[in-house]
Design a protein around this nucleic acid. Structure first.
Lengths: 229, 229, 229, 229
DNA sequence: AATGAATGAGACTTCATTCAT
DNA sequence: TATGAATGAAGTCTCATTCAT
């Protein structure tokens, strides 16, 4: 239970020490240590949120599970709300990063399909991160600290999807008689609904099967001409 | 598990009423008092959950907001978990009731459309109930007390949707090359996702527009022949 | 667990009804029912005290375990303290009754031995009653409601033992160079200590063996001439 | 189980102290603060138990009476049960310590007498501690948290007494026709019974007189040859 | 920088007690 | 008489937060 503390600092640092002034080296090291500690605590926080929900997160447990003291998370993030917001952003960044990699070099309808695929691929990152993400999305309803972050997520997602659809319409690959903005919201909401269902019951939900049906559904519904799945 | 037992009042009592009015009056009144208190506390609980999430619910506030003492909710529903479960069941019952009324006399694809329409009509019941419902669905991930109830909701919903689609396929109104079970899950998850999006931002989400677009999407995707929207 | 409710009133009462005026018959029956209910609740209270200590006793549980409603014990005994006091007295009365029977027809040293024997025989009444008795004795330290009752017990016990020893001294069966009052206290305290040890660990304490050793100890210590055990 | 872990402070620190006074000073002070708070709360707990019994003890009062906040006792001893167990152990340790000091350099029957004397001397520690000790012994019947500790006390006491008697028998100072184990239990139970009687009514029980009478009783009963009182 | 000591608030839960029926 | 509805007070336990070291 709990992560293994890795506070030991590798001996390799001494090598760099010669090249840089002592004061600098120290600040570097401190900053690095801080960055690592923060990152470990954000991961720990995500784990906890995945297990117990946003209200189940405590500063002390985040610190301990990351291998530090009960007080450190409070020391870095000052308050639970700030820890939550930071954690939400970290997860979202990770997801965004992944989607970008998948979209590289695509365009039009293929890009829309790749985007959907990116959603279905997310679980590969791990059930834990996904669970925490869903918890954050829903927590926005009650936690002002999350509301802002989630509003941003939604705006980004809507814009992205909307742009995708609009450009696919322009390319003549998607029927022009639909409302891009509304369709974007539907698609994004549907994907989130499916992911929520999956994290609730990973065994009972066959993501691969759903992905296929979902892509078929989208293609029949949106494509100006059928896509070969 | 489930709600606190309510002494069922047999219908036969009316007959005796003439002979022993006082005794009956007494029992009636006690039972009524209890039933009313219970129902008011369930409503209050839903309000609170809508505002603050499942973890924000407290027995004391449920009692007070219903107009009683801080202790009464704890007295009836022995624990917060039981209150939550009872509340979840009450909301689900209400929704089920509404859907049943809407479905009366329909069949085939029209029945599927009516079911979807029932989902979009739910908000009429009130943003509060819907918010509470969504909170309960998501809360199942962390609260064992809700997990059981929600598992039942999901089973029911899947069965219902699946049957609808299957029977519409038999009727030749839905294309036979889809997997009824998977489509049922997708539809139900999509509707939940849309509702979640709506409760998060009621102003920013145009439900009527979404409904139209969603029905179009479903018709194009599932119908053996186009539905006139 | 818990007693079986016996609220049914036997049919035989109708027979008596003819012989006595209605008002009388009712009061009789009521009084009897009340007496039975009280007695059943006192027994239930003793059970609960034996299991959970004097602070673990609750009016509601006493009522329910006796087969009545949660409210009845409060109705009869008005408060927890009164119930405790009544229970203490009931147990003491029972023990006193038993001792009296054992002492019938004895005198002198034999009477002292019989009294000691009565203590060792008490467990036959049941571990439960004994446990409750010990709990009451100790509870006197903190519960004013019990202090009075226990003070009486102690006075009675000291008087009784003291008289026994004094009369045995007069009869020349006990050495005259001891202080009767102090020896009485020692004997009574020792017996209680042994019983306390027994109720804490009935399996680990061999009462029969202790009885033999204890009688030997007393005889060697007190008797003017050795008693044949 | 048992007491909250206390950071042991190595004796070696004094050596380092010269080199790094500040760091040591800091750690010292933290540890000392904790140790003092803990010890004060254990004392406060004993006071409360003496006054109100084991069930009358509350974490909040233990904290407050020790001069800290209502929450601190709960912070250190995670639960009431653990506080009780720690308190029991602390008292027992204190008593054991005292007995050991009294027994130094004794052997045979004199050692047995010294042990009994230690019991009668305990009250010198204070009525409060003694009351708390008795309450703990009896509380073992209902509080699993105490049962374990008390079982240990009993085992220790029985072993100790048994060994004493056995060795006095070997030394020819105690008659060989008694059962050492049973006599040990009787003596220990009798002493506890006497102490219980005393804490219930310190005014009414003349410990000095009882001590004399009790030693006489033991000597006449056990000694191979009379002891000069 | 990092730890953890200490506070105080709040939630759950359990009851004694009072009251309505 | 008997039931049980309703209140309000504790008590346990868990945290966010602040502060000393």
């Amino acid at each position: 239970m709990g992560a293994v503390p890795r506070k030991a600092i590798g001996a390799g640092e001494a090598v760099i020490a010669a090249a840089e002034p002592v004061a600098i080296r120290r600040r570097r090291t401190q900053a690095e240590r801080r960055a690592e500690a923060e990152s470990r605590m954000l991961s720990a926080a995500a784990e906890i949120v995945a297990e117990k929900g946003v209200d189940g997160l405590t500063l002390a447990e985040a610190g301990e599970r990351a291998g530090y003291s009960r007080g450190l998370a409070g020391h870095y993030f000052r308050s639970k709300d700030e820890l939550l917001a930071a954690m939400a952003e970290a997860i979202h960044d990770e997801f965004t990063q992944q989607r970008r990699e998948r979209l590289r070099g695509t365009s039009g309808l293929a890009r829309l399909v790749a985007t959907i695929d990116a959603s279905f691929a997310r679980p590969a990152v791990g059930l834990t991160k996904m669970r925490a993400y869903i918890a954050v999305l829903m927590g926005a309803a009650h936690k002002p600290a999350l509301a802002e972050a989630v509003a941003t997520f939604n705006r980004d997602s809507a814009t992205e999807f909307g742009r995708l659809i609009a450009s696919a319409i322009e390319a003549g690959e998607i029927r022009p008689d639909i409302d891009a903005r509304t369709q974007a919201l539907i698609l994004s909401a549907a994907l989130r609904g499916i992911m929520a269902q999956w994290v609730l019951d990973p065994e009972g939900v066959d993501l691969a099967g759903i992905r296929a049906e979902f892509l078929g559904l989208v293609s029949r519904s949106l494509a100006a001409t059928p896509i070969p799945t």
